[in-house]
């Protein structure tokens, strides 16, 4: 409870930091905030043109022209959100060392700022995707609402992973390097650019272990099949995410004193 009160007391700082971070990304570029739109737009265009028009890729069992590019985008945008939150949280203590060493303030505000910023970037890109869906007549309708719990659970999982990595990264800087390698494998081991159905039966167990696979599958189901996710498949990522968050907080309480000394 005191945690929430601290967050509320420092809402000014959180709001200001989100704004500053957003500005910082674009203040030295001429097109400014336009880049937040250009990047995801390029992504949608590339995947749609290349895969749907040029390569004529079709999803197994779905003949729609745009089905593959919808499949891709629904996975990529959300995967990028995961990557942004975990990578930024991983460096959160190192990049803010200057503040942490000189001012006393609730540290919990820092991951909140990261998540909010990532969400803003995500929403800009994702709303373009929604517009694209509406234009092409592929908007899933009320089923769309069911992405809210999925995103929430994904964020919980991302914070859990990010905080643990962030704390470890202060003491062992190898963690940061290692994680970027792991991310590469993780991306290709998760059905984002390919359909899970092409994986041989024997390897399916691997997908069960990967919490991101169930999350991605939920998104793809919502947008491609226009179906509400099978909630039981998300129990595992939720539980895992909560456990990771708890471990992260425990680890933080244990290490916070040493952490300031190490920065």
């Amino acid at each position: 409870m005191s945690l929430l009160k601290e967050l509320w007391d420092y809402r000014g700082f959180i709001k200001g930091s989100v704004k500053r971070e957003f500005q910082l990304n674009y203040q030295n570029s001429m097109l400014g905030a336009a880049w937040t739109i250009i990047n995801p737009l390029a992504m949608i265009v590339v995947y749609t043109v290349i895969f749907s028009k040029v390569m004529k890729t079709r999803l197994p069992g779905n003949a729609g022209t745009f089905s593959y590019s919808i499949f891709l985008c629904s996975g990529l945008f959300t995967w990028n959100l995961f990557v942004e939150i975990t990578c930024k949280t991983q460096n959160i203590f190192i990049t803010n060392a200057n503040l942490i060493k000189k001012l006393s303030f609730p540290r919990i505000t820092l991951p909140v700022v990261v998540v909010l910023n990532a969400l803003i970037n995500f929403l800009i890109g994702f709303s373009l995707f929604i517009i694209f869906l509406i234009i092409t007549g592929n908007f899933p309708g009320w089923v769309f609402i069911s992405i809210l719990p999925v995103i929430t659970l994904q964020i919980i999982f991302s914070i859990g992973v990010g905080i643990i990595l962030g704390i470890l990264n202060v003491f062992f800087r190898d963690v940061g390097q290692l994680y970027s390698v792991i991310l590469q494998f993780w991306f290709w081991l998760t059905p984002i650019v390919y359909s899970p159905t092409i994986i041989p039966e024997k390897m399916r167990l691997g997908l069960k272990v990967n919490p991101m696979a169930s999350i991605m599958n939920a998104y793809q189901g919502i947008f491609v099949e226009k179906q509400i996710p099978q909630w039981h498949s998300l129990i595992y990522p939720v539980v895992l995410g909560l456990i990771l968050c708890m471990i992260g907080i425990k680890l933080y309480i244990r290490c916070s004193a040493d952490m300031v000394d190490e920065l």
Binding site: Y10, G12, F13, G16, L103, F105
Partner: peptide, 10 residues
Amino acid sequence: IMAAQLMGYN
């Protein structure tokens, strides 16, 4: 502004 926010100013 940032420092003031960190000091809890609205």
